[in-house]
Design a binder for these strands. Structure first.
Lengths: 262, 262
DNA sequence: ATTAAGTGTATCGCATTGCGATACGACAAA
DNA sequence: TTTGTCGTATCGCAATGCGATACACTTAAT
């Protein structure tokens, strides 16, 4: 057999220099927003010379801004231009956007569109309606799927085996004192979601926040994404959520679904 | 003098392989949302072998998704994660977001935050309120600065010389039959903006769209960004815009300004 | 002032690494 | 089958990036 294993394939067709350069981009996150050469070297685990060349190249090519005074590097506008290109490439976003705007306007509450990315969910589109913490208002955020209404709603559309793998092996993290750490509870919540066609979570990311998510179905019956509504427990009780939010949320998710693959 | 010219500097510290790899990412845009190896080779001007290695590396590293059936490449979720990192690194966004949400809610109209990026403006944050065309609802879009209310509002805060350079040399493009091509008209519009502290544009990007932009001032009196409100000419006349929208828009822009640099 | 530490910048010879022509294989159309 | 297209894999060569090191500049302490 001539076919190469992954490791070997990685060797022959893998351009290490490019991978290193991208590691420099990935070094930036919410707590590392601007970095000196030294800081980059430390975070990427590469030596100063390599980082110097790579960062310089990224700077010349317009991927990093360089503060002339501090000599620190920062993400450039190019990072948002990539997001722009992503949006055009994700067929779901185009189909969903007008309906999400409508929903947000009707409900007057925060609406999100999220997809699953590995074992996390990722917010693709956000329409904040009230003041929230910063991270909740920007796209691209990743959260452990099991701890979110979006993740549970999507997983609930999967086969028994896949569900079980996710429930038992995917990571959990503590965000609030009430972030569920018990996988049995999560299993039950996902089972409910499967039965009802939507998922509700409470106090998972921040206290007194309720998330309600409805899956956007693909042609094979598996969720492609989920529409989520985030509300305050002070303003909404269970009964009102079911009466006012759910019908519209489910309508919106269903309205998006058929268009997903034509 | 030992200091190297840019061209030489480029030679010694420039990592060509990285630059090539990034050119593969940049090949994707609104009209090229998924590409085969051949298409990538053509768009980047590199030969098939190089593209093969680079695209494969990007795929392995999680920057490109590969459709197993068509073998075509598409942007991955990583592209949105970069946007996430960008948002944390731009101090203006954190300061502006809550105020933009408030403004959007008060006015019930689409609110944008945009910055200047070279000779274009770039939408950094968008809060759409009504159905619009897709491009108007997603971040990262670049538009010729001279044709937008945001660009004109920001340029109006610059020195006479800088303004003149922008007005006479920056690019124009035709979007609608009424997109202003006359640089004298643009000069007059910018002068108005300088006198009034805001800019209004009509029919520039699409017909019957009115853009109203107020600059967010930096400590040196130059605009750092602009808050923009986009409304329909069918729903709003000049008088109502000045009475209802402008006061709140200017308030919001001013409220953001002082926080920009502490 | 002088010294010293820390950080960014530039140099250079060597070997690694990526280059690109080319051949192979899979699939589709004629 | 033949022909064409497109993705995949190979391989020897030399261009390219590597990384140790030396230099320049700034800041802070003595």
């Amino acid at each position: 057999m001539k076919k190469l294993a992954d490791a070997e394939k990685r060797d022959s067709l893998f351009v290490g220099t490019l991978a290193k350069g991208l590691r420099v981009l990935r070094a930036f996150d919410e707590s590392n927003t601007e970095m000196s050469l030294g800081a980059l070297a430390e975070r990427t685990g590469m030596d100063k010379s390599a980082v110097q060349r790579l960062a310089n190249t990224l700077h010349v090519e317009g991927w990093l801004n360089k503060d002339p005074a501090t000599r620190r590097f920062r993400p450039s506008h190019a990072w948002l231009e990539l997001a722009y290109a992503y949006y055009w490439s994700d067929p779901l976003v185009g189909a969903a956007m007008p309906k999400l705007i409508e929903l947000s306007r009707s409900l007057g509450e925060t609406i999100n569109l999220a997809e699953i990315s590995g074992d996390h969910i990722l917010y693709v589109s956000r329409l904040p309606c009230h003041r929230t913490y910063f991270a909740a208002s920007i796209i691209g955020r990743r959260l452990p799927a099991l701890s979110t209404s979006v993740g549970r709603a999507m997983i609930s559309t999967w086969s028994e085996e896949e569900r079980e793998i996710a429930i038992t092996t995917w990571p959990l993290k503590v965000f609030t004192p009430r972030t569920t750490q018990d996988r049995d509870q999560i299993r039950a919540n996902i089972a409910d979601a499967a039965a009802q066609g939507f998922a509700i979570s409470r106090d998972q990311m921040i206290l007194n926040e309720i998330g309600i998510a409805a899956p956007i179905m693909g042609p094979d019956g598996r969720a492609l994404a989920a529409v989520q509504c985030s509300v305050s427990a002070y303003a909404w009780d269970d009964e009102r959520i079911r009466r006012k939010i759910l019908p519209m949320l489910l309508d919106t998710a269903n309205a998006i679904s058929p268009h997903a693959r034509g």
